[in-house]
Nucleic acid binder design. Structure first.
Lengths: 231, 231
DNA sequence: ACCTGAACACCGTTCAAGT
DNA sequence: ACCTGAACACCGTTCAAGT
C-alpha cells in the first residue's frame, strides 16, 4: 500500500506539458508517424485513453507540437544578443536561429504546413521579424512580402531538394543503382553540375550538398534584394 | 451471364495508371489523408486487396502520386513556348508553371518533402532549369545554389505562412475570436502591417494575402540576385 | 479527478482461397 | 492472372466502469 503510494508519487502526474514533451521526443527519435496516441501513452507508462484527460484529441496534440517548437525558437532568440542596430543582421540572426531549431526537429516544418491554424507563438516570431524590418526602414508592404519569402524558405529548406526525408541518404547509391551512364546521357547539365560540385566540395564525406551553405546563400540573396528594394 | 460479361467489359481493367489517377482525384477532392488503400479501391469499385496486384504497397502509391504531379509539370512545360534567349525569363516560366500545378494539387509539396527518394521525372525538371541557367552564363556552383533556392520556394510557398492547410480560412475570424485589441497590444508591428495591407489590398474579398503576387515578388528577388551574382 | 477495459469503426498488409 | 474474404496487428475515439 505504501509501496504503491510511493510509486505513484515518483511517477510525476500526467500534464499537457509532459504529454507534449514525450511526443516531441518520440517524433525526434522515430519520426512524426510514430506519434500515435497509443505510442505516446506507452512512453509515459500509461494507457492511450488517459491522454484524453489532458488533451481533447490527436489534432490538439499535433497543434501542441507546433507550439512547443515555436516556443523553442522564441526561447533561443530571447537568449541571443541580436544586433539591433542593423536590420539585415537582426533578421538574419532570427532566421538562422529558427533554422537550427527546425534541424533539431525535422518533422516540424511539414507539420506546421499541415495544421489549419497558426498558433499565437508563431505570430510572436513574425512580430520580431516585422519589427526589425520596419525599424530598419522597410515599408509594411515590403515587410509583408519579406515575411512570406523568409518564412517559406525557413520551412521549405528542411524539405531537401535532392535527398528529402531522412537526411541520411546520399545521392550516390541512387545514381549507381539507376546506372550513371544513362543519367549522364539524359541529364547532361545535371550530371556536369553534380560532378563539378563534388570535385569542388571542401568535405567530400559530407556529400556534395551542404544545405547550411545553401541556406545562408539564399538568405543573403533575399536580404540583399530587400535592402535594395528598401532604398 | 452475358450481362455480367458486358459489365466486366465496360469496367476497364485495373492498371497502375488507373489506380494512381483515382488516388490523385481523391487527394484533390478530400486531401491526402483520404488516400487510403481501402478508399482508393472503393473509388474504383474494387476491394483494397486488388490494388496489391498493381502496386507493391502504399509507399509506392504515394511515390506514384509524386510521379504523376511531376509528370504533369513536365507536360505543362513542354506545351509552352519558353523564351529560350533569356535565361531569367525561361527559369521564371518554369517555376511559375510548376507553381500552377502545385496549386492544383496542394497536397503535393508536402508529399514530395516526405518521400525518401527523388523520382526520375523530378530530376528531369531540374535538368531543364539547370540547363537554362548554365546556357545563360551561370556557373555550375551558382546554378546548384539557385536550384535549392528556387526548389524550396516552389515547394514552400504552398505551405502558407498565415493560413496554412485549407486555403479556405481567412485570418479575420481568428483575430476576432482571440480579441483584436489584445493582439494589437502584443503584436503592434504585425497589427500595423495587417491593417495597412488590408487597406491597400486591391481585392478586399480575396483577403490581405495575395500569394501569387508574393510568389512572383520572391521569384524576382531571387532571379535579380542570381543575375547580379552571375556578372 | 484521474485512469482503465472493452468496444467501434477504421488503417495496411498477409495468406489461402476462389474464378 | 486477377480478384476476394477472413484474419492480424495496428489506428483514434467513445463510453461505462473502476479508484
Amino acid at each position: 500500500m505504501t509501496n504503491i503510494e510511493s510509486m505513484r508519487a515518483t511517477r510525476a502526474p500526467l500534464t499537457r506539458e509532459r504529454v507534449l514533451a514525450a511526443a516531441v521526443a518520440l517524433a525526434d527519435a522515430e519520426g512524426i508517424a510514430a506519434v500515435t496516441m497509443r505510442r505516446v501513452a506507452g512512453e509515459l507508462g500509461v494507457e492511450a485513453m488517459s491522454l484524453y484527460h489532458h488533451l481533447p484529441g490527436k489534432a490538439d496534440l499535433l497543434d501542441g507540437l507546433v507550439d512547443v517548437v515555436a516556443a523553442e525558437v522564441a526561447t533561443e532568440i530571447a537568449g541571443r544578443d541580436l544586433p539591433a542596430e542593423d536590420w539585415r543582421a537582426e533578421v538574419s540572426a532570427r532566421c538562422l536561429t529558427a533554422r537550427t531549431v527546425m534541424l533539431r526537429h525535422p518533422w516540424a516544418p511539414g507539420l506546421m504546413g499541415s495544421r489549419s491554424t497558426v498558433p499565437p507563438v508563431v505570430y510572436g516570431l513574425y512580430e520580431g521579424v516585422v519589427g526589425a524590418m520596419v525599424r530598419g526602414g522597410l515599408s509594411y508592404r515590403l515587410a509583408h512580402r519579406a515575411l512570406h519569402a523568409l518564412g517559406s524558405m525557413v520551412l521549405g529548406f528542411t524539405q531537401e531538394v535532392f535527398r528529402p526525408a531522412e537526411a541520411g541518404g546520399s545521392l550516390e547509391p541512387e545514381l549507381a543503382e539507376a546506372g550513371l551512364a544513362a543519367i549522364v546521357d539524359a541529364l547532361p547539365y545535371t550530371a556536369a553540375m553534380i560532378t563539378t560540385e563534388m570535385h569542388d566540395a571542401t568535405d567530400p564525406v559530407l556529400g556534395w550538398c551542404d544545405s547550411q551553405t545553401e541556406f545562408e546563400f539564399t538568405l543573403d540573396l533575399l536580404l540583399d534584394g530587400l535592402e535594395r528594394a528598401r532604398a
